[in-house]
Design a protein around this nucleic acid. Sequence first.
DNA 1: AATTCGTGTGATCAATTATTCATATGGAAG
DNA 2: CTTCCATATGAATAATTGATCACACGAATT
Lengths: 119, 119
Amino acid sequence: MEEKDTCEVVCVHEDEVSDVKSKMLEDEFLFEVSDNFKAFGDSTRLKIMYALSQRDLCVCDLAAVLDMSQSAISHQLRVLRSKNLVKFRRKGKMAYYYLADEHVVSMIELCVEHTKEKL
Amino acid sequence: MEEKDTCEVVCVHEDEVSDVKSKMLEDEFLFEVSDNFKAFGDSTRLKIMYALSQRDLCVCDLAAVLDMSQSAISHQLRVLRSKNLVKFRRKGKMAYYYLADEHVVSMIELCVEHTKEKL
DNA sequence: AATTCGTGTGATCAATTATTCATATGGAAG
DNA sequence: CTTCCATATGAATAATTGATCACACGAATT
């Protein structure tokens, strides 16, 4: 009689499920975490961050390093800024970008290591 | 006279650019790294991995924990398997999934920490 | 062997997203 | 103030992708 015809799940192990459920972090928070990961999940943005881990660079130099249009780079920098992964300072007409903190480097290093191991 | 009408880049600081360029990792490798990040960049997959970090679970239990269809979970598990982030063992009709290694946990912890700091 | 049930998967659709193009903004120099 | 140039951005397009649906597969039970 209860509403149960949406998304029929049959073999649920009640205790295990509720145990894990209680240990899950908030949906909203995990969404934000995955959203941060997403910033690293595009090769253009990853290259930008990796380049910036070597030294601070202005937008057009980043474009030259990645061999991409200034516009494309600028759009991606906007995304990275919005997630507090990069910051910038103005110097004349130019904008020098740099990594926001050490977390970014750690994240990349960790994933680089993981990727290397799987070869 | 040189070919220069594709992707006009004007203000290039030659030395800095070639310096960073020489330090860049291979395009193909960085692509693979970003591809691994991408696995964490979807909230469904992240929830799956977080749940599995609590305990091994079969597919339908995962579906119950996340309150999603078994099919959706299975599709995402396929992605995670292909990237060597989760493994599974069969037990009767069921498939119990678990995290492939400690890197996965480390990655999530690091990003969770970063996300918390930005609140 | 027929049925049941947990899981895997191909096709499809809707939504998201990365890049390009054109243009706007704003600091610096004449 | 006008021009130049580095950067930012809105609109449009093309490509990617996550969820659903329908169905196939395979182990276990009868």
